[in-house]
């Protein structure tokens, strides 16, 4: 019963766990918000500047797709995060804490989300876009009234995947000063070798991911009329 006793009394759980959980939520929430705000338009641009899009623009497409998105995605996240510490310092005045970590989390996730959005939008049949154009839609109306609503189930699924990824990344961000459950597991579980903390952290992360996935799938089904 030592293990269960430990669970109830270990200060790593009774005192540090809740703030760490809140920090993880904070990092994930802020990053998810900015990732969607920037990544959704970026995904739309990736699709529409490509050949056959609504506004083909080879130069812009090469810049966005080939340079920005592909380069960012090819840098391993741990390295990207460390290399973005100066930017976080510049933007939020500190390199420590969940808000600073959100800067690199957001920048690391935007290209990933934008690619998922691009793929979801590509599934909207050309016939629907033609129909909207023939009825006299502007390009902006095609995006707002056809592309995004028709791809909404896919976009919701992309958001779910992105939030799940962010929860995982946020644990990594904990190692370089971001705080949250990742740091808790590392400091208490690994460095102080307290298996109970490690186990509880893992269980919380697993439950969190499950919950996000279930809610995401539920919303996606709700908006899917196909």
């Amino acid at each position: 019963m030592d293990f269960f006793n430990d669970l109830m009394t270990n200060p790593g759980i009774t005192k540090a766990m809740w703030p760490a959980f809140l920090e993880t939520m904070q990092m994930t929430g802020i990053s998810a918000l900015f990732t969607v705000v920037v990544g959704l338009p970026l995904g739309i641009l990736l699709l529409n500047t490509a050949r056959g899009g609504l506004t083909p623009n080879r130069g812009l497409n090469v810049l966005l797709s080939g340079i920005i998105v592909n380069i960012t995605r090819s840098i391993p996240f741990a390295i990207l995060m460390v290399s973005l510490i100066p930017l976080a310092t510049l933007l939020v005045g500190t390199s420590l804490g969940p808000i600073a970590a959100s800067v690199s989390l957001t920048i690391g996730t935007i290209p990933f989300f934008a690619r998922l959005v691009e793929t979801a939008l590509r599934d909207v049949s050309a016939g629907k876009i033609d129909a909207a154009l023939v009825m006299g839609s502007t390009r902006m109306q095609v995006v707002r009234k056809v592309l995004v609503p028709e791809a909404l189930p896919g976009i919701i699924a992309a958001m779910t995947t992105t939030i799940v990824t962010l929860i995982g990344y946020s644990a990594m961000a904990g190692l370089v000063g971001g705080g949250g459950l990742g740091r808790l597991a590392y400091n208490y579980g690994f460095q102080r070798y307290e298996p109970a903390i490690m186990v509880v952290t893992i269980v919380i992360m697993v439950l969190l991911v499950q919950l996000v996935q279930i809610i995401g799938d539920w919303i996606a089904r709700l908006v899917d009329h196909r």
């Binding site: 629907k128 033609d130 009825m135 006299g136 009234k145 609503p149 028709e150």
Partner: peptide, 28 residues
């Protein structure tokens, strides 16, 4: 808008109801 078009596969918007599909050109 002077030419109304009917497509082989209708090309309706799946996210819209019948009434909302018919309303589309008017919304524009």
């Amino acid at each position: 808008r002077r030419i109304g078009m009917v497509f082989q596969h209708a090309n309706l918007m799946d996210s819209r109801t019948t009434a909302q599909n018919v309303a589309f050109p008017l919304e524009l």
